[in-house]
Every structure is written in C-alpha cells, then in structure tokens.
Simulated assay, not measured.
Amino acid sequence: MENNRAKKMYDYHVWANQQVFQKLKQLPDGVYGDTIKSVFPSINEVLVHLYATDITWLEIMKGSTVQETFKKVEQRRKEVDGISLNELESSYDELAKDYDNFLNSQPDLERTIVTEHPKMGACEFVLADLIHHVVNHGTYHRGNVSAMLHQQGENGAPTDYVFYCLK
C-alpha cells in the first residue's frame, strides 16, 4: 500500500494540513478566529468546512448512505463548533487515522464504487479518484487560508506538493 499513488497523495494532504496548523499556532490569537471579508468569514470556518467535507467523502467511500453521511457530518460539526485551534487540530489528526485505517484496509483503491448523490442520483467513482478529489479540495481551501492570512498581514504556510516530496 505504501507505493500506492492515491495513498501518497492523501499523506500529502495530511502533511499540508499540519503545516497550516503549525503556522496558525505561531500567529496572534485573533488571526484564526476573527471575522474578515473574504471567501469565508474566518479561517476557523475554512478549516471546519474542510474537516466536514473530508468526513463526507470518507463516509461515502466507506459505503454510508447520503442520509447516514449527512447525520455523521452534522454530529461531528457540532463537536468542533467553538473549539480551540489545538482541539481542531486533534480532530483532524483523528480523522487522518480514520482515513489511514480505511485506506490500509482496501485491497484495491482502483475499484469503482456506486453512491447516491442528493442532486445527481446514482454515481460511480473510482476510490483513488475520490481520494485525489479530497486532496485537491484541501489544496483549494488551504489556498483560501493563505489568502486570508495575507489579508491580515501574515504569510501563509508553504504547502506545495514539491515541498512534501522534498521533506
């Protein structure tokens, strides 16, 4: 499994999220939670969105129904509502373990799954493609965080894939 490209990409996603958390911990308290005029009202809300979306896709990959998935996401969102940056980081760490357990239990990440989409009906996805989607979505929103940090006079964390490869 270690040579699997999709798993490597997910490991990059975890590493990049960790870089963002490390950067945020170095900044003044208000930077993380203050409301700003941007794509999201705060950096906290970007990170909660990313967390919830990662849960959504893991549940879908596990075979949960859309209703089960939305219920679980709503529950986990409530659990992270208003928690500290360090606590949210711990929630991300736990989710990464859940992903690792799932990915390591899969004999074939190139297999196709069928899931129900609330607007598009039945959809077929290759598991590896969904993992790449999770990573791509994370990259997009880490870019939001970087832009929001720049709006507040701070620098973002370098999370380019090449930096992960060179670590």
Rank of each mutant, 00 (worst) to 15 (best):
M1T: 11
K8P: 04
M9P: 03
V14H: 05
W15Y: 07
N17Y: 04
Q19E: 14
F21Y: 11
P28Q: 07
V31N: 07
G33M: 00
S38H: 11
F40M: 04
P41F: 06
P41A: 09
E45A: 05
H49W: 12
Y51T: 02
A52V: 03
A52F: 07
D54M: 02
M61T: 11
T65E: 10
V66Y: 12
V66Q: 11
K71M: 03
K71V: 05
E74Q: 11
R76D: 13
R77Y: 02
E79K: 14
D81K: 13
D81N: 12
S84E: 00
S90W: 08
Y92W: 08
L95G: 00
Y99M: 02
N101E: 12
S105C: 12
P107K: 15
D108A: 05
L109P: 04
P118L: 07
P118A: 08
P118W: 11
G121Q: 13
G121K: 12
A122K: 15
C123K: 15
V126S: 05
A128S: 15
A128Y: 11
I131H: 06
I131T: 04
V134M: 03
T139D: 00
T139G: 02
N144Y: 08
V145Q: 03
S146V: 08
D160A: 08
D160R: 06
V162E: 02
F163N: 10
C165K: 14
C165R: 14
